[in-house]
Simulated scan of single mutants.
Amino acid sequence: MTSRELDPAFDALSEPVGQRIERHFDAQLEARGYRADAAQRTAIGRLGQWLESFLAGKSGWLRRPRAGLYLWGGVGRGKSFVMDAFFAAAPLVAKRRVHFHAFLQELQGRMRNFAGQPDPLALAARALAEETRLLCFDEFHVHDIGDAVLLGRLLKVLVEEGVGLVCTSNYHPDGLCPNPLYRERFKPAIALIEKRFEVLNLDGGEDYRQRRGVLEAWGSYCWPLSGFTDGWVDRQLGLTPAATRDVEVAVNHHPLRVRAMEGERAWLDFDELCRRPHSSADFLWLSQRFGRLAISGVPCLGEEAIDVQQRFVNLIDIAYDAGIRLLLASEASLDDLCRGKPHMDFSRTRSRLQQLEPVQPGQGSD
Rank of each mutant, 00 (worst) to 15 (best):
G74Q: 13
G78P: 02
G116R: 13
S80C: 02
F87L: 03
N113A: 14
D84P: 02
G116A: 11
M83D: 02
G73C: 10
A102M: 02
F114Y: 15
F87S: 03
A115E: 14
R97M: 07
R97E: 09
N113M: 12
K79F: 09
A89Q: 01
Q108T: 10
Q117L: 14
N113C: 07
M111F: 04
A89N: 03
K79L: 09
F87H: 15
R97H: 07
F86K: 01
V98H: 09
E106G: 12
G76Q: 06
V82G: 01
G76C: 09
F86G: 00
K95L: 04
D84W: 00
K79I: 07
Q105W: 03
A90D: 06
P91Q: 07
F86Q: 00
V82W: 01
F114D: 04
A115S: 14
Q108K: 15
G73E: 05
R110G: 04
G116M: 13
A89T: 03
D84K: 00
R97K: 14
V93A: 13
K79T: 05
F81T: 05
G74Y: 09
M111A: 05
H101S: 14
E106F: 15
N113T: 10
G78L: 07
R112V: 08
R112E: 15
G73W: 07
L104A: 06
H101I: 06
A88G: 00
F100Q: 06
A94C: 04
V82N: 00
F81L: 07
G73Q: 09
F81K: 08
P91H: 06
H99E: 12
A88V: 11
A90L: 08
A90N: 04
A89E: 06
A102P: 03
G74T: 14
Q117K: 14
F86C: 00
F86N: 00
K79P: 07
F114T: 11
R110S: 12
F103Y: 12
R97T: 07
Q105M: 05
A89K: 02
R96I: 04
V75K: 06
G109R: 13
F81Y: 10
A89F: 03
A85G: 03
L104H: 11
P91Y: 04
F100V: 11
G73A: 10
G116C: 12
G73Y: 10
R77Q: 11
N113I: 03
A88I: 11
H99Y: 08
A94L: 08
D84Y: 00
L107P: 08
G73T: 06
A89V: 04
L92I: 02
V82R: 01
F100D: 08
A115D: 12
V82T: 11
R112P: 00
A88Y: 11
A102V: 05
K79W: 06
K79E: 08
F100L: 15
D84T: 01
V93Y: 01
M111Y: 05
A94E: 10
G109C: 03
N113H: 12
G116D: 12
V98L: 05
A90I: 06
R110E: 13
H99I: 00
Q108N: 14
H101R: 09
L92P: 01
Q117P: 08
V98M: 07
E106I: 02
F103D: 10
V75C: 11
A89M: 02
